[in-house]
Design a protein around this nucleic acid. Structure first.
Ligand SMILES: [Zn+2]
Ligand SMILES: [Zn+2]
Ligand SMILES: [Zn+2]
Ligand SMILES: [Zn+2]
Ligand SMILES: [Zn+2]
Ligand SMILES: [Zn+2]
Length: 510
DNA sequence: GAGTTTGAAACT
DNA sequence: CAGTTTCAAACTC
C-alpha cells in the first residue's frame, strides 16, 4: 500500500529523490553505518523484528529479494578484487552450462572509456609498475554493491577503493556476497562474465549514440539483438562517426593527461601507459581513438566476439560474416609488434656477434636467397593503417623507419655496416617465407624451414660463433612464441581488451 | 558539485 | 511476459 511512504512522499515531483541526502550526512564516510532506509533497510528492520527465522530463511531472503537484516557496518574496503567461483550454488537451472563455469567467448573491443572528470577513478593502475590494475570505483549507495547495478559486483570484482556506501561487496562479507551472486545467477546465468553475450540494448531516446547505451559504450554497433529505437549506432553512420570522434578526442586528452601524470613528461621514448583498466578483462572500459575507422575488419577493431555479429542495419553482411572466425590475437598482435621483435632479434644477434670471439664474414654461403628477394615491403602495404592506429599504445612509434631500414638492409646491418649472420637473416624473413610457402606447399613448410636453418648452421660448419649466435636468437624467438601462445589463450578465454594485451605482448620481449 | 536524464536491473 | 520501480552512471549546467 503505502510502501516506502517515507521516500515516495518526499518525492512527489522529483523522480530521483536521493536518499543520498540522508546518507551523505549520516555516512559522511562511506563505510559508516548507513542509517537511512532505502527500502532495503526498511525491510531489513521489519525482518529484524522477526529475527527468529533462522539462518536458512534469512539466506533465502537475501537471495531472492532485498537485503538481509544483518550487519550494517561496512568493514574497511578490502583490497583487490577477484572473481570467486560461484559454481557451488548452481541451482541446476535448465540453462546451466554442462559442467563448469566455462569461460565464455567474450567480446573484445576497445570499450569507450569512462573518464568522467579528469581525475579518473581508476586510481589503481600501474599498481606495481607491472600489470596495470584497473577497477573503477563505484559509488553505489543503495544496493550494497550486491546487485548488478554495481559495476564492481557485476564484474565479479570486489569493491576496492570505491566510494560506495554500505558496501557488502568485500571479502569480509563473502557470505552475503556469494548469496547475492547466486541470486543473480538464478536470473542471469551469464552474469559475472562481463559484457558477455549482452542481450542488446533497448535504448529509446539516445539513438544509441551516448554512453547510456551499452552497445555504444562498448564501442560495438548495435546488432539484431538490440531493440533500440531510432538507432544510429551502426557502421557507416555519419552521426556515429562524429560521436565517436567526440569521445575519441576526450579519450586522447585523458590519455595524455594520464601519461603526463605518470611519466611526468611525454618524452619520445618514455613508456606510455595506456593500458589502464583492463577491468579484469571483463567489462569494457577504455576506448582508444579508433582513427575514425569504420570498417569492421580493421586490425584495430576486433569484433565484439570471435564471430562477427551481424549488424542490425546491414543485412548484406548477415550471410557473409556470419561465421568469420577471428583469432584471439587478431587486433592484438600487430605488424609492428612483429617488426619490433624482429628488430630485437637482429640486435640480439648483432650483439652476440660482437661479443662472441671470432666472427666470420661470409655471408654468401648458405643463406639463400629465395628469401632475400622478397623484402618486407609486403608487410607494409597490407597492414599500413595499423601503425598509425597504434600511435598511442606502443612504446615507441618509430616502426616505420625501422621497418624500412630493416627491410632494405638486405643482409646488412646498417648500424654496423656489416653483414648479418645467416641466422639473423633467416629470422628476418622466415615468416614471410612461411606464408608464401604455406600457400604453395603447405606440407613442406616446416621441413623446409628446418632444413634451411640447419643448413646454414652446418654450412658454416665448425664456426661456433654462428651457432651460438643462432642459439641466442632462437631462444629468444622461442620465448616470444611461448609468450604469444599464452597471450592468445588468455585472450581467447578471458578476454583482455586490446590495450592490455598489447602491453602484454610488448612485455614478451621488453 | 548539484540536478537531470537515461536505460538496465530488480521487482510486482 | 509486461508494467513499474529502483538504481547508479552518464550527462548537463
Ligand atoms: Zn558498488
Ligand atoms: Zn565498487
Ligand atoms: Zn562497494
Ligand atoms: Zn542502444
Ligand atoms: Zn544496441
Ligand atoms: Zn541501437
Amino acid at each position: 500500500m503505502e510502501h516506502r511512504e517515507g521516500v515516495g512522499a518526499a518525492a512527489p515531483v522529483m523522480m530521483q529523490l536521493d536518499i543520498a541526502v540522508n546518507f551523505t550526512a549520516a555516512a559522511g564516510n562511506a563505510n559508516a553505518k548507513g542509517n537511512s532506509q532505502p527500502k532495503w533497510l526498511e525491510e531489513a528492520n521489519s525482518k529484524h523484528a522477526r529475527a527468529v527465522l533462522g539462518p536458512q530463511s534469512a539466506s533465502r531472503q537475501l537471495a531472492r529479494t532485498k537485503f538481509p537484516p544483518r550487519k550494517m557496518v561496512m568493514p574497511p574496503k578490502s583490497p583487490h578484487r577477484e572473481l570467486p567461483r560461484m559454481a557451488e550454488r548452481s541451482q541446476s537451472p535448465p540453462v546451466a552450462p554442462v559442467g563448469e563455469p566455462v569461460p565464455v567467448p567474450k567480446p573484445a573491443l576497445q570499450p569507450l572509456m569512462k573518464m568522467e572528470s579528469p581525475k579518473s577513478r581508476e586510481h589503481n593502475w600501474e599498481q606495481n609498475g607491472g600489470t596495470p590494475k584497473k577497477q573503477k570505483q563505484c559509488r553505489c549507495k543503495n544496493s550494497r554493491c550486491l546487485k548488478l547495478y554495481c559495476e564492481c559486483f557485476a564484474n565479479g570484482a570486489y569493491c576496492d577503493g570505491c566510494n560506495c556506501v554500505n558496501c557488502y561487496n568485500t571479502k569480509e562479507n563473502e557470505a552475503d556476497r556469494k548469496e547475492a551472486m547466486g541470486a543473480v545467477l538464478e536470473r542471469k546465468p551469464n552474469a559475472f562474465y562481463g559484457a558477455e553475450q549482452s542481450r542488446g540494448c533497448n535504448c529509446k531516446r539516445t539513438g544509441c549514440l551516448k554512453k547510456y547505451c551499452e552497445c555504444f559504450q562498448a564501442n560495438i554497433p548495435c546488432s539484431y539483438k538490440c531493440k533500440c529505437i531510432d538507432c544510429k549506432n551502426f557502421e557507416g553512420c555519419e552521426e556515429r562517426k562524429a560521436r565517436l570522434y567526440h569521445y575519441s578526442a576526450d579519450s586522447m586528452a585523458f590519455i595524455q593527461q594520464a601519461n603526463v601524470a605518470i611519466n611526468g613528461a611525454i618524452g619520445p621514448s618514455s613508456k606510455k601507459i595506456i593500458a589502464f583498466d583492463e577491468t579484469s578483462r571483463r567489462k569494457y572500459t577504455k576506448w582508444l581513438p579508433e582513427s575514425h575507422q569504420e570498417p569492421c575488419f580493421t586490425s584495430g577493431t576486433p569484433s565484439s566476439q570471435s564471430f562477427v555479429q551481424p549488424s542490425k542495419h546491414d543485412p548484406t553482411k548477415l550471410g557473409l560474416s556470419k561465421s568469420a572466425y577471428r583469432s584471439p590475437l587478431s587486433g592484438i598482435l600487430q605488424l609492428q609488434h612483429v617488426n619490433d621483435f624482429c628488430k630485437l632479434l637482429v640486435e640480439v644477434s648483432t650483439e652476440a656477434a660482437k661479443t662472441l670471439p671470432e666472427e666470420r664474414k661470409m655471408i654468401d654461403g648458405g643463406i639463400d636467397v629465395n628469401r632475400a628477394d622478397t623484402s618486407c615491403r609486403h608487410y607494409e602495404d597490407s597492414n599500413d593503417h595499423q601503425s598509425q592506429q597504434s600511435a598511442v599504445e606502443l612504446p615507441e612509434n618509430r616502426g616505420n623507419e625501422d621497418r624500412t631500414s630493416l627491410c632494405e638492409s638486405d643482409g646488412y646491418d646498417i648500424q654496423n655496416g656489416r653483414p648479418l649472420s645467416p641466422g639473423t637473416l633467416a629470422l628476418m624473413c622466415d615468416e614471410r617465407d612461411a606464408t608464401f610457402m604455406a600457400a604453395n606447399a603447405p606440407s613442406t613448410v616446416t621441413e623446409s624451414n628446418t632444413t634451411t636453418i640447419s643448413k646454414s648452421a652446418s654450412a658454416l660448419g665448425p664456426d661456433q660463433s654462428y651457432i651460438e649466435q643462432e642459439r641466442l636468437v632462437l631462444t629468444r624467438l622461442r620465448c616470444f612464441l611461448n609468450g604469444l601462445i599464452t597471450c592468445g589463450s588468455i585472450e581467447g578465454n578471458e578476454f583482455n581488451h586490446k590495450v592490455s594485451s598489447t602491453s602484454g605482448i610488448l612485455m614478451l620481449w621488453s
